[in-house]
Design a protein around this nucleic acid. Structure first.
Lengths: 261, 261
DNA sequence: TAGTTTGGTTCATTATATGAATCGTGGGTT
DNA sequence: AACCCACGATTCATATAATGAACCAAACTA
């Protein structure tokens, strides 16, 4: 693990429940020495990736991130293109829909549209999804080599110690099923009571870049609903992939068996 | 300069004219050895801040940036709040308007709204603004200690070797004038033919966080226009600062003399 | 006012970053 | 089709930077 990796790992500590973190907490949560943490934080401060609340001196994500996001969106308008697709899928299914993208060794939610139902699943944008315990993660894994998939699952299991360890075969079976059906299903794993259906989005070079997922209360989830939601999810991912420049044939081939299994 | 600083400095090489960069170019532009550059790039790859075009193997800004941007926007909705203010200012003035935020030692454009005029100034979001050669930079400097201002100007001059060096007194005088008037004006510095009028935005703790600026063709710029645009810019920055939670009195005091000088 | 927590600093120790030389390969040219 | 060149990527001895236990000052708490 390089020095830069350590410094950048501080960024992963911020979340919607923890948007501002002091030096001591930063040090405790990251496991680094306080002096080391300070130096890392200062490097991130200099680059603008973090900034410091002038009152509390606590750290928060910096404005440079917004600039970089604009820059990226200008050249590769992932957000802009995915937003309407997410909304359309939310409209059709009436459930919470989120679009997540792979970033390095993690899968992070980029867009989330919460349903208006009484029992609603709230997905905060910016949420990191474990590879082995979400429909999105499992769907994505089905498009990777088993070697890389195993590496990611290992990382994911290690960084989510609170989750029940998956049976040796669960992940393998889920991936196998997903690669046959073109979508993955996952219920009561990351959180009890939540079920998800997800399928993979490809970019213009045919590489998997993210997932579209529908999340709903598992109490309201059954085989009939699975069937109908999966159809819409697969359709939406195909649509989004094509809008991102992927070839329709390729996308169809990757998600080949469709929902008719 | 720490290792992390070096690695993160690679991010600053990306721009709207250069959205994808290969290893060799990355190495040349950063001045690091190719092997070193590769290791830095790989660290950024692991964190998701960069990603690699699977076809060309060139590097581009990664999807993690979008996730972090959402996270930040959720806790401190700078973009969301500033967007309508930028648009209102663009509407009133009929000129190009941009909102830029300080990030570490740089000033970067977060939102840009291009005018619909025949002679239009196009500001790309993500553009880095030199402190010493833009209205935004000079306005912001007028709210910093002279020690910090000098440090930033030095950095800025060093990283924009193509710009004409400012006279010893130009920056000092411009800052002095800006601190009296509450807005800064800068014409034909960063680019010949472009004039700008900018004023500073404050956050809820009273610290300066960015600037609103109007950019127009310097050929269409005169003292009368300066007066009318400055009034609108100052009004817009006050409005935005208050929407961000700044106290009206404080903001007014900081921009005290208003436009009536 | 005494105690406790927080952000921040120091310096000897140790681990990591660095870059010249090198390799393999895919794209472009003749 | 054969060539070359430029590019991405790797190696390993060397040099440089990261590390953390102890320490300090200031702000908050009781």
């Amino acid at each position: 693990m390089s020095t830069t990796d350590k410094a950048l790992s501080l960024l992963a500590l911020f979340s919607h429940v923890c948007p501002e973190i002091g030096l001591t907490d930063l040090s405790k949560q990251s496991g680094f020495d306080k002096a080391t943490t300070l130096r890392h934080a200062r490097a991130l401060l200099r680059s603008g990736l973090l900034e410091q609340n002038p009152d509390s001196r606590r750290y928060r994500l910096g404005a440079e991130i917004l600039r970089l996001a604009n820059l990226r969106e200008g050249m590769f308008p992932l957000r802009t293109v995915a937003q309407p697709v997410v909304e359309a899928l939310a409209q059709i299914t009436g459930e919470t829909v989120h679009f997540s993208a792979r970033a390095g060794d993690t899968l992070g939610t980029v867009i989330a549209h919460t349903s208006a139902k009484t029992v609603r699943i709230v997905v905060e944008p910016g949420l990191l999804l474990p590879w082995h315990a979400t429909a999105s993660g499992l769907a994505f894994l089905s498009q990777l080599s088993s070697k890389e998939g195993e590496r990611l699952v290992e990382l994911s299991v290690a960084s989510h110690p609170s989750l029940a360890q998956p049976d040796a075969s669960f992940v393998k079976d889920a991936i196998q099923l997903a690669s046959v059906r073109g979508f993955a299903v996952c219920a009561d794993r990351l959180e009890r009571g939540v079920a998800g259906v997800a399928s993979v989005v490809f970019d213009s070079s045919g590489a998997p870049i993210g997932t579209l997922a529908v999340a709903l209360a598992s109490a309201q989830f059954d085989r009939f609903k699975e069937q109908s939601i999966a159809e819409h999810v697969v359709e939406a991912t195909t649509d989004l992939s094509i809008k991102l420049g992927a070839s329709p044939q390729h996308t169809a081939k990757r998600l080949r068996a469709g929902v008719a299994v």
